[in-house]
């Protein structure tokens, strides 16, 4: 384990929010980018938190304390993002109904914001009626749902269908989907995204989409807040590499079709579910 990771883990282990924040501040001043901090500190630590809960070494309270610190760090890093350009595409990011493990959705939301999207982040367990009403009003480029607990999946067909009936793509990700697009597509999602790069690809319009809703180009480095440089993933090839749509899944099932996807960082749901 890298010394920085060990130090960060020690802070979480002792539920020391101040120490965790000081360490992240230091890493940021030393030039570590925000995606790197999330990828190398927050996400691996959260995976370990989940493992310790599963093994019974940590109780729920301890796990929640550490998770809350992790979430606070991601919020804090996100606070440095410049104000969103009103001309850029809007995406909505939320957990599915009943899903309260919001850190994966938060990481994806901040990642998309870093890639230039305007992001409405609705957090955990949104009311589906209110969500659909809000989405129909704001007309985002896509709605991205995160699910960690498989038990949250069964009730999602209706809201996915409602959103798609309004012409709004539904992109899903998270450990509940089992690492491939099968469950997502069975529930009626437009696409499954394994990671941030895939989510960026899935949130682009199809070829021939209007210029108004085109995927934002990367911001020039001068417009970035310190430490907010992009992760490596959101390339123009991300669609074919990481995002699996219903049509692509059908093609993949044919002989000679693509068989793998999801190769980049910032995994969406890399840790076991927690309670």
């Amino acid at each position: 384990m890298h010394p920085l990771q060990a130090e960060y883990w020690a802070a979480l282990e002792s539920a020391d929010r101040v120490a965790a924040l000081e360490l992240v501040k230091r890493a940021r001043v030393e030039g570590t980018s925000h995606p790197e901090i999330i990828d190398r500190l927050v996400v691996p630590a959260q995976a370990r938190i989940g493992e310790l809960w599963l093994s019974g070494e940590w109780d729920v309270e301890r796990e929640h304390e550490a998770t809350t610190i992790n979430e606070g760090i991601v919020h804090w890093l996100g606070s440095f993002a410049p104000p969103p350009d009103p001309g850029r595409p809007l995406v909505v990011v939320a957990c599915v109904e009943t899903e309260r493990h919001s850190l994966p959705a938060l990481v994806i939301a901040e990642g998309l914001a870093g890639e230039g999207y305007r992001v409405d982040y609705l957090g955990g367990d949104p009311d589906p009626t209110h969500l659909v009403r809000a989405v129909v009003t704001t007309r985002p480029r896509a709605v991205l749902f995160s699910a960690s607990l498989t038990s949250s999946l069964a009730g999602q067909k209706r809201v996915f269908a409602e959103l798609r009936a309004f012409g709004i793509p539904v992109v899903v990700g998270g450990s509940a989907f089992g690492g491939d697009p099968d469950r997502a597509l069975a529930l009626g999602a437009t696409a499954y995204a394994a990671d941030l790069a895939s989510a960026c690809g899935c949130s682009r319009p199809c070829r021939g989409g209007s210029s108004r809703s085109r995927c934002p180009s990367r911001r020039p480095p001068t417009s970035r807040a310190p430490g907010s440089s992009s992760s490596a993933g959101c390339s123009p090839r991300a669609w074919s590499r990481g995002c699996v749509t219903a049509g692509a899944a059908r093609r993949a099932s044919r002989p000679g079709g693509p068989t793998s996807w999801g190769t980049s960082t910032t995994s969406w749901g890399a840790w076991p579910p927690r309670w």
Binding site: L149, T150, S151, S152, L153, A154, G178, R183, A186
Partner: peptide, 18 residues
């Protein structure tokens, strides 16, 4: 509750591995 929810998800998605 989690197990029951997973059974529902298994039926709805047709994915018995759940």
């Amino acid at each position: 509750d989690h197990v029951v929810g997973c059974l529902a998800a298994s039926v709805v998605t047709g994915d018995e591995t759940i």
